[in-house]
């Protein structure tokens, strides 16, 4: 058996005309699909600047507004439930109140008089409070070293949206000091004390 016989035998195998027609049809359909995809992609890419840009700008503006709102909300105080280990609510506290109380301090003869101004007296919880005291405080000298700390202070009555508290401490050498407060405790008649947390500080001179 020579190679010619093999070649002759296999050469007789030819693609049937029906198969050729089917393959041709499939190729034409595929070519049309490819052309449609390419045309669609071009249209899409050309349309992007005109149609997408306003949408992108609107989305960016919306995000900015939401972020600003969230930032503003983040600066406002919030009520938080206090729960026991069973998950039952046993009380509450008010957090992030740093921007809602202004602090001022004056030192004289071993006594520091601290005035806490309630900046939002008509807003809860300040409108309900009758008394206020400092839960935790710290006094730092000009170098940042703590020279006194303590708390809570005596309870002061809130009058005209302000509470004046007295902190008794050891006599301080002359100089610049900073008074730090980590939290207050508010009181109302027939109600549980309300911890108010945040961060406050004010400078005073001895």
């Amino acid at each position: 058996m020579g190679p010619e016989l093999l070649k002759h035998a296999v050469d007789q195998v030819r693609m049937p005309p029906q198969a050729r027609a089917r393959i041709l049809q499939a190729c034409r359909a595929q070519a049309a699909t490819i052309q449609e995809e390419e045309t669609g992609m071009k249209t899409k890419s050309n349309a992007f600047p005109r149609k997408r840009l306003p949408a992108v700008l609107a989305a960016a503006a919306l995000c900015l507004c939401c972020a600003a709102g969230a930032f503003a909300a983040g600066r406002a105080g919030v009520f938080v439930n206090v729960k026991n280990w069973l998950g039952a609510v046993t009380g509450g506290r008010y957090e992030q109140a740093g921007q809602e109380i202004a602090l001022d301090a004056a030192y004289a003869d071993g006594t520091l008089t601290v005035t806490a101004d309630l900046l939002l007296p008509k807003k809860a919880p300040y409108r309900e409070l009758d008394t206020l005291c400092i839960a935790r405080y710290r006094i730092a000298d000009g170098a940042g070293d703590t020279v006194a700390e303590g708390g809570p202070t005596e309870v002061a009555v809130i009058e005209n949206g302000a509470a004046r508290m007295t902190v008794v401490c050891d006599p301080l050498p002359s100089g610049e000091y900073t008074f730090y407060v980590d939290g207050f405790t508010g009181g109302a008649k027939a109600d549980a004390p309300l911890p108010i947390t945040g961060g406050w500080q004010c400078a005073f001179r001895a």
Partner: peptide, 11 residues
Amino acid sequence: TESDGAVLQAL
């Protein structure tokens, strides 16, 4: 096929 079927079958 018109060819030698034995060759094709062998291949």
